[in-house]
Design a protein around this nucleic acid. Sequence first.
DNA 1: CATAATGTTGCGCCATGGGCAACACTCATT
DNA 2: AATGAGTGTTGCCCATGGCGCAACATTATG
Lengths: 259, 259
Amino acid sequence: MGNTHLAESSSVQSVDRALSILEILAQRGESGVTEIAADLGVHKSTASRLMTALLNRGLVDQVSDRGRYRLGLGLVRLAGSVTSSLDAVSGSRAVTKALANEVGETVNIAVLDNNRVLYVDQVIGPSMVSMRSWLGQSVPTHCTATGKVLTAWLDKPERIAARPNSWKKLAPNSITSADALEKELDQVRDRGFAVANQEMESDFMAVAAPIRDEHGEVTAALVISGPASRIKAEDFEVLGQIVKQSASKLSGNPNFWRE
Amino acid sequence: MGNTHLAESSSVQSVDRALSILEILAQRGESGVTEIAADLGVHKSTASRLMTALLNRGLVDQVSDRGRYRLGLGLVRLAGSVTSSLDAVSGSRAVTKALANEVGETVNIAVLDNNRVLYVDQVIGPSMVSMRSWLGQSVPTHCTATGKVLTAWLDKPERIAARPNSWKKLAPNSITSADALEKELDQVRDRGFAVANQEMESDFMAVAAPIRDEHGEVTAALVISGPASRIKAEDFEVLGQIVKQSASKLSGNPNFWRE
DNA sequence: CATAATGTTGCGCCATGGGCAACACTCATT
DNA sequence: AATGAGTGTTGCCCATGGCGCAACATTATG
């Protein structure tokens, strides 16, 4: 239930259902054909046949011969090709490594994915914190430095579309209203970088700056993050300038952008 | 050309074609509908419709409105769900971080994917080398420490199936024959860990040990790697024991496995 | 051992997805 | 500018391919 049964433009139904299966497996982690068929509103046999198609290509694995299914390694392989072709990531290693070395914290690159922030590349800093691998994880836009950077320069309607589904208070300093977020984004545009001071989870601090393409559009965000024990609020201004400078180097246009 | 047109068991053709598109895009990096249609041996319109199905789910992105396509962020999101559900990776962060800290080198977890080695999780060591992110990358089995670990304990037919497609000499010490590989694997089983001394690329050293499930089967490999300037051949024995011990902690059974 | 689950496979029928061709559009070339 | 060849997208109509049904094989559970 809760499925989006809107017939999105003109597409191929069986493919659409197969891709639905992937999303369902991503949510449940491991499922049988029957419950998936129920979710899709199709017969068991249909789900089974779609599943074998996915299985042949390695996008799903069957856990115990006859039995349940889970997402497969083929997806990891494909995802590797994605990030290597992302403009922001390609050729960014030298810069991100240098940044991680300079500030001694974890460095990530993130992009906007509808109204979520998706982490696509990561370098872990020398301090060896380190929080878990963020790759492929997505988080809301309103409580992260990356989210603010990625939305601040959007047009108003796009900004609204990028707002979170709920304004639940996730951490001590979470932003919990659209008005407060707009004010925050004003400040981000002013300063040219964004910060998050324990807004997604407590003890978690981050500073982010925009990566722009050759037209000046913000296409990705460069972010450093670490525990409150090492990143203090009074360091924000200094770190912001550092991150901003690194992000400029990654921008499509070699010239720095003035803001 | 060179397509595998074997009708793999009973699957759904349109889905199969759609997944073919993903693999084609992974190889070419960015393609138009026409050349993909030629590769699939179908009409442009068919390829276009399949593409929109993939587009609606975010598995591909169109680069410039009207125009070419590339793999999309949806794949990264899905791949994130894969690794987090992998037995070997879940709950491994504490161990891998400790290992990276102890040896000061990059730590990876890899699994066997047909006859290739696929890297699924990574922690970068404090020395900040660091080679590029290995995630989602796949390499042959015969010239890597991980490949040896992942194949050494397989049955003979499985070992043969896991052999590389070509025995091309990739680096100074590459193994270039099945016989030499079998002898090497004997040694791996003996020692309980594997090494690679500039076998894939020069200046690149690695030491790997097996991660086993509760039945004792090798399901993943834990590996440390770094440049020859820091990892010497005479360190192999010491590092091997360290990696072996960390890998034991990751194995499904809390008891250590005797070999 | 019986019962109730599961996932997989022939088999027809009808929907659906494929090919065709016309269209919209971008980019070179003259 | 105007032409041309290239692209990707969209109605249309027919038959192919995918769906539901039901029987089957297999495994869990009593």
